[in-house]
């Protein structure tokens, strides 16, 4: 998938973006309506040109979108200025709108940074193809992520957190005293083993990061009762030289259990 400069958008063509922004707002995003966006780039005024209902041939799910002509971009930066006069696709998120209605919408960050811009009113069939392409790209991204995690980890399993205890810094991790991960200990019961010398019903302990330091931001926090897929790596991966303990240290070391099929596929392929 190629990256396209948002300012080169032309009327009458469809685009799928995986853009890397160089300035705020240069990432062109699916616009949303009706709630505070978690993340986004621009506030756009405009009017609804058409409402489209679509059904995915892959999952059968339905989605309603509006095609929205931008009259004014409040951000003052790309892509705001670039979007003036353009038509973008707006996810309605349950908010009823009608043709020709004037609205303010907000751009938002779609999963895996995959964004759509639609430059003209499309037919449902075209819309469907575009949506399928998006879904496929998201799935590919997740598969790649899981493959990397499986490859990196010593143990991979679906497990249940049965206990959590706070710990003290391990000496081997402590040359940076104030950046120390302040490792805690989680007791995990294996529900289903995917990789490594473990079996279902095994119980093992794993480190997790308790530090609030900025360089540990994003490290997974585990809670008693949590059921997830765990990718356990040695503590040496985070600078704990000489430690043989395994733990979850990176954001990608814990995955929602609903993604088990991706893990199974990754283990089979390695």
């Amino acid at each position: 998938m190629s990256v396209l400069d948002p300012t080169s958008i032309v009327t009458g063509r469809e685009y799928v973006f995986a853009a890397t922004p160089t300035q705020w707002g240069s990432d062109v995003l699916v616009a949303e309506l009706g709630h505070e966006p978690a993340s986004g780039a621009a506030v756009l005024d405009g009017s609804v040109q058409q409402v489209v209902h679509a059904r995915s041939t892959g999952t059968g799910a339905t989605r309603t979108t509006a095609f929205f002509k931008v009259s004014q971009a409040w951000s003052g930066q790309a892509p705001g200025a670039a979007l003036s006069g353009k038509v973008i696709k707006v996810e309605l998120d349950g908010v009823p709108v009608v043709k020709n209605e004037h609205l303010t919408v907000y751009t938002s960050d779609a999963p895996i940074n995959l964004n759509l811009v639609h430059a003209d009113i499309t037919t449902p069939a075209q819309e469907l193809g575009l949506w399928n392409e998006v879904q496929t790209a998201r799935q590919e991204q997740l598969e790649k992520l899981v493959q990397e995690s499986v490859s990196r980890a010593t143990l991979v399993f679906e497990g249940l957190v049965v206990n959590v205890t706070t710990g003290s810094p391990e000496a081997a991790c402590s040359s940076g005293l104030l950046n120390n991960p302040q490792l805690g200990m989680a007791t995990l019961r294996v529900v289903k083993a995917y990789k490594g010398a473990i079996r279902a019903t095994d119980t093992l302990s794993a480190d997790f990061v308790q530090s609030d330091d900025v360089r540990w931001a994003g490290a997974p926090k585990v809670k008693k009762g949590q059921r997830s897929i765990f990718f356990l790596s040695p503590a040496s991966a985070i600078g704990c030289v000489g430690s043989t303990q395994l733990g979850v240290y990176r954001k990608d070391d814990v995955l929602n259990a609903s993604n088990a099929r991706y893990v199974e596929e990754a283990v089979r392929s390695q």
Binding site: W24, L29, D109
Partner: peptide, 11 residues
């Protein structure tokens, strides 16, 4: 980077 939390560039 508010526009793209997955970006490789910070503002």
């Amino acid at each position: 980077n508010y526009a793209s939390p997955t970006s490789a560039l910070a503002p």
